[in-house]
Design a protein around this nucleic acid. Structure first.
Lengths: 292, 292
DNA sequence: CTAATAGTGTCTATTAGACAGTATGTT
DNA sequence: AACATACTGTCTAATAGACACTATTAG
């Protein structure tokens, strides 16, 4: 039996049969399909959201948020996963594939998109050998219009423990899911870690690791690139920008130091943000530095 | 016709027929194979070599060198390329595949190996859709024993031009090959570039881009990791270490500054390097920093 | 002695961290 | 007036850059 027929029969592209359990579903797979190889692009779509505050004076508390999709089919039926899709080897690159998924899930094009890593553990997908190239997309959530079915934004809380263990809590307002990853240094000469998922009950595939990899990528890049501005609206206050930095870096920054650092990345406009119960602030705008 | 038979017939795994030209070779390909997908792991194996000097006092000039393999089959017959191999989707991960190739080309295991990027332009391989995940390996060339057939070490010279163009010259002592890559900023908010190969007559596939990506990865990581020590012997002088830094960063460093920076990464031993026509120097050894 | 590298002391410039202070809106 | 944030001045600490100087060997 050839690959295409198998894919059809086994519902990788489209659903053919209603299965009652994951075991039943997997039993129906022809093992010869394991000799074949498929690729997917999975995307960690990251944005910043702000929670409304009860105190009229206080500014809204910001947090990072990521877009997850609830799986409607086996495997991992009912679990959350990153938006992703199968690569059509005939017509598209992995990045084009990712853009297609992104368009479908957010209706946005022209989005910051960066290849993160290729995840390829042999058994990462129980159906067959599926290798996934993960991407990170940064968007300004305010640009989104309608809600997409089965997709939901989760606020991210990251807690780094002493023994190289990270607890990640995701909350979409209705549901809270959490997972724990142990970071094991790969070799003594570098900063690279193997991510071992210690606890994970709600996320499909190896997406817990993908999420942490992506968040760390953003964290490491925020200091030597201007990627934050992909998550900002055109006009913003320096206080808002600082909060985004703080949320990504997961630590408080000192005002004067922060303003020194971003001084040549932004330009002051005439506009102001007023009505916040305290001194109004100037709105700034991203300005590409000349020396770059 | 199923995939395996096609692969057999068309000599992806093993050679079946002697072709006289690339055109003839490609004509023989069944176009239906383009619907399928294969992956390879390609490795940029990087080391440091030193050229002998005519002046007995002067220290040998160091340079980075990379291992290339001469292609014996179409496509790109006779051109140089990175060591690489097809992934067996049934049994191995991309990294294991890379390790297998590494063992075969250098007879080394236990080597620093890092995933670089997944290259997947649709037409990057004229045979069919072959997606390549590139790795960077760092080795100490002195650990190598015998020479491998068709493989050769090329010294690297990198010249960065003003208008974001890079000239790379590779020299293995008998042959000099060079290529030019234009770096085009992908988006204004980051440091990411599209690499456009402007001139390349001697390298197969998209390996010119892979080489530059890999060299830039090393350059960017040398300052915040300890990866250099993977290219160093156990005992080395600080002068030698500094030279390696200078060769990778492509600029001169000031002695006192350099010694301050690497002070807590190395430990002094009792051994000395003598007989060099000048003041002997202490040999140092890599020491993993406690605070890491 | 000389050429070449090894290794250190110290001054200066730049950058990061810390804290205190002033400014100004809304309720 | 009180609160919360906006924004700046300035001192200090830490780090990076620069230069000059001394030390030591093979030939």
């Amino acid at each position: 039996m050839c690959y295409n027929q198998l894919v059809k029969k086994q519902g990788i592209g489209e659903k053919m049969k209603e299965y009652q359990s994951e075991e039943e579903f997997l039993k129906d797979y022809d093992s010869s399909i394991f000799e074949k190889l498929s690729m997917t692009s999975d995307i960690l779509i990251v944005s910043v959201s702000s929670k409304d505050n009860d105190n009229y004076r206080k500014t809204d508390k910001k947090s990072m948020s990521i877009l997850l999709v609830k799986r409607t089919d086996y495997p991992y039926k009912g679990k959350w996963c990153l938006p992703g899709g199968f690569l059509d080897p005939k017509t598209e690159t992995l990045e084009e594939c990712a853009k297609r998924v992104l368009k479908q899930e957010t209706n946005l094009s022209n989005v910051y998109l960066e290849q993160l890593y290729t995840f390829d553990e042999i058994d990462r997908d129980p159906r067959m050998r599926i290798i996934s190239t993960a991407f990170v997309a940064l968007i300004d959530k305010k640009k989104l219009k309608e809600k997409v079915e089965n997709a939901s934004w989760f606020d991210v809380t990251l807690m780094e423990e002493k023994n190289n263990t990270v607890d990640i809590v995701l909350d979409n307002g209705e549901e809270t899911i959490s997972f724990t990853i142990k970071k094991k240094l790969r070799e003594k000469t570098t900063d690279r870690y193997d991510f071992i998922t210690v606890k994970n009950t709600s996320l499909a595939f190896d997406h817990a690791r993908v999420i942490l990899s992506g968040l760390e990528r953003i964290k490491s890049k925020i200091n030597y690139t201007d990627i934050v501005f992909n998550m900002m609206p055109e006009y913003f206050t320096l206080g808002e920008l600082q909060q985004v930095y703080e949320v990504i870096l997961n630590k408080k920054l000192l005002d004067p130091a922060f303003r020194r650092i971003i001084a040549n990345k932004v330009e002051k406009t005439e506009r102001m943000r007023t009505g916040a119960g305290h001194r109004p602030s100037y709105l700034f705008r991203y300005k590409k530095n000349e020396r770059d």
